[in-house]
Design a protein around this nucleic acid. Structure first.
Lengths: 150, 150
DNA sequence: TGCAATTAAATTGCGTACAATACGATTGTA
DNA sequence: TACAATCGTATTGTACGCAATTTAATTGCA
């Protein structure tokens, strides 16, 4: 082990994670463009399709995004007519996000998205599952106990 | 398998990849801040520390970054005094990037970076290696249909 | 050879994404 | 009723890719 080995690009775990994340998101662009949404908007809709009416904060927790990112994103989705943002009348600090009928209809068109992008991922089912569980394990300890401030 | 199962967030491979990539890069910020560089600048320096004098294009290939991303980044590194950008005299289309003595000196300070960030990654050595090889495999077939010449 | 057409590399401009910070409004509570 | 906590928004700065542009090198062809 030489002195600078830890600084070789090939010895970084973070780098392929960073690069693969970027590259795969890029694969979504041409596909999602036809639906008139971006990748971040897409994963937001994935959550809403499962559970409508979540608050900005709840969405952020599920998507690992902060409200400063979500606010403009949700406004864009509202402008496109896919969601409505409404303040909760009981607690007016909360903004809840609801799908419109257009937003619900988009779910049908989105059905083909995973197939189209999945063709770029030439991993076996086993490998994909392994990768999936390793990523969630990593994600778990990055966001729970990973505080490295001094 | 229900109709919309493929659109559940939990069934996406891309999402944990995207999220983990973002989160781990975020861990670098406070550490790299002390060196006065960003994460993208850091990985660029990692490459240059191994091999000085690469062109913008060659850097882009190694880092999976577009030249439109690298140009302002390299200018920033130049402003900070870590690199010099010089046009190749034989082929004046090429801009080659060289470390300054400050840039080389920064390598010493960077030695502690992997250690500091590595503490956030609570994977076993085996798991880390598995993740590493799966990511590179994925990265390989994500970028296949682009170009692969060296 | 000599010059046009093509190819290649870097830059510029634009649009989106994301985080950090400060701020304002609301709520719960001491 | 004052005050701290909570939630969303506005602002700012960096990051990133794509498309169009500029400049340089190469190729095709007469």
């Amino acid at each position: 082990m030489k002195k600078y080995d830890s600084l070789k690009l090939e010895n970084q775990l973070c780098f392929p994670l960073y690069a693969a994340g970027k590259e795969i998101v890029r694969k979504y662009h041409p596909v999602l463009e036809k639906l008139n949404i971006t990748y971040t908007q897409y994963i937001t809709l994935l959550v809403l399709w499962e559970q409508d009416g979540l608050s900005v904060k709840e969405l952020g927790k599920k998507l690992y995004l902060d409200s400063g990112t979500l606010t403009p994103l949700l406004k864009a989705l509202e402008t496109k007519g896919f969601v409505k943002r409404v303040r909760n009348s009981r607690d007016e600090r909360l903004v809840e996000v609801f799908l419109t009928s257009e937003g619900r209809a988009l779910r049908e068109e989105a059905l083909s998205v995973p197939l189209q992008v999945g063709q770029c991922v030439a991993l076996s089912k086993d490998e994909a599952m392994q990768l999936y569980s390793l990523l969630y394990k990593l994600l778990g300890n990055l966001t729970n106990e990973g505080d490295n401030s001094e």
